Amino acid sequence: MTIQASPLGLHTLLTLHVEDYKKLIEISQFIDFTETILKKYTLEKVGIASHVFDNESYTVAFCLMESHICVHTWPENQNLALDIYLCNYSQDNTQKVRNIAQDYITFFGAKILKQIEVNR
């Protein structure tokens, strides 16, 4: 195992516009899709927390050995905020973060309103 001195990992923050209202209120679709992401990219889940609000929007946080994936939806605005961070402890996960972000953009059929990448 190689320990990376710098950067510690890539943190991507996305604000997305989503036309498909159901994707913003059906939490099970997001959770199921994220489980497939974890398998596809060999990521290890250590916990999950979620909540569905009165307007059916949801928030979900997957805590990973490698860090986290979180989402918050606003169906009334057709927007969501997505947060993906993977550390580079055992390998460089930079491209993996970018690929995961693109997979979510495709899943939601989303238009990027804002995207920020932070090298930790």
Rank of each mutant, 00 (worst) to 15 (best):
I48M: 14
I48H: 13
S50G: 08
H51E: 12
H51D: 10
H51I: 12
V52G: 11
V52K: 09
N55V: 09
N55S: 13
E56P: 02
E56F: 03
E56G: 06
S57I: 10
S57A: 15
Y58G: 05
T59K: 04
T59F: 08
V60K: 01
A61F: 06
F62Y: 10
C63A: 15
C63M: 08
C63Q: 12
L64P: 06
L64G: 02
M65L: 06
E66Y: 05
H68K: 01
H68R: 03
I69C: 15
V71N: 06
H72A: 14
H72I: 11
T73K: 05
T73P: 07
W74M: 00
W74S: 08
P75Y: 12
P75S: 13
P75C: 14
E76V: 05
N77I: 00
N77A: 12
Q78I: 04
Q78T: 10
Q78E: 07
N79P: 05
N79R: 10
L80T: 04
L80C: 05
A81K: 01
L82D: 01
L82F: 07
L82V: 11
I84T: 04
I84Y: 00
C87I: 06
C87V: 11
C87Q: 07
N88F: 14
N88C: 10
Y89R: 15
Y89D: 15
Y89I: 15
Y89H: 15
Y89T: 15
S90P: 09
S90I: 11
D92Q: 11
N93W: 04
N93V: 08
T94C: 12
Q95M: 11
Q95I: 05
K96S: 05
K96T: 15
K96D: 08
K96C: 14
K96A: 06
V97I: 04
V97W: 00
R98V: 07
N99W: 06
N99I: 02
I100D: 13
A101I: 02
A101E: 00
A101K: 02
Y104N: 04
Y104W: 03
Y104F: 15
T106N: 09
T106E: 11
F107E: 02
F107M: 04
F107K: 03
F108C: 03
F108E: 00
G109S: 07
G109T: 01
G109C: 02
A110M: 01
A110D: 00
A110N: 02
K111N: 14
K111C: 10
K111I: 02
I112W: 02
I112E: 04
L113A: 13
L113I: 12
L113R: 07
K114W: 03
K114T: 13
K114L: 11
K114G: 10
K114F: 09
